[in-house]
């Protein structure tokens, strides 16, 4: 355990990690685990994994795992402090870039360069879906059924303009009936 105040450690730790989180908040999960489990000993690896699973299952950005860790370390204040350290400075950076982008608007080269980033954005969305599907199937009582639900849902969302709430509801029913 370190001697410094837990709030200070939360701020420094998550601030540092957030600046490395290119590709999304979940990109730095291994670094986060090192900070929480090894550097500060705030919880064990299982506690960390459970909290991430919870943040993933609960609605909202997966980065909310940072809030759960903050809560564990220093209660409600810890939760807000950790979230702010993780998302505040990077949001400011995004704001600054958006401003700069507006000033450069109309430069054709910029639009063309940005277009080169689009496939990476879409590719990483697809990858996160695949990883999520694999993780869910691994943990399910009937992996093939879970994969079937995933596949059906992917087809529905791709081919239909109806609300994805239909597939989430369908998934909930299938889960309640067969995946216990």
């Amino acid at each position: 355990m370190s001697e410094e105040s837990p709030l200070g450690a939360l701020v420094l730790g998550f601030l540092g990690i957030s600046l490395l989180s290119v590709g999304g908040g979940v990109a730095v999960l291994p670094e986060m685990q090192r900070l929480v489990v090894e550097t500060h000993g705030w919880m064990d690896a299982l506690g960390f994994a459970k909290r991430f699973a919870l943040a993933q299952a609960a609605p909202g950005p997966n980065i909310m795992v940072v809030g759960l860790i903050g809560w564990h370390v220093a209660g409600a204040l810890g939760m807000f402090t950790a979230m702010l350290a993780m998302c505040g400075p990077t949001s400011l950076l995004a704001y600054g870039v958006a401003r700069m982008r507006q000033r450069l608007a109309g430069r054709r080269g910029l639009r063309v360069a940005e277009r080169g980033l689009v496939p990476i954005a879409v590719g990483l969305i697809a990858a996160s879906g695949v990883l999520l599907a694999a993780g869910t199937a691994e943990g399910a009582a009937l992996p093939w059924l879970a994969l079937g639900v995933t596949l059906g849902s992917a087809l529905f969302v791709w081919r239909s303009a109806r609300s994805p709430l239909w597939v989430l509801g369908f998934g909930a029913i299938m889960g309640a009936l067969f995946l216990r």
Binding site: Q56, A57, A133, A172, G175, L179
Partner: peptide, 11 residues
């Protein structure tokens, strides 16, 4: 678990 499987497909 069913919701998570469907959410993965949604992504």
């Amino acid at each position: 678990q069913g919701v998570a499987a469907a959410a993965a497909g949604m992504v």
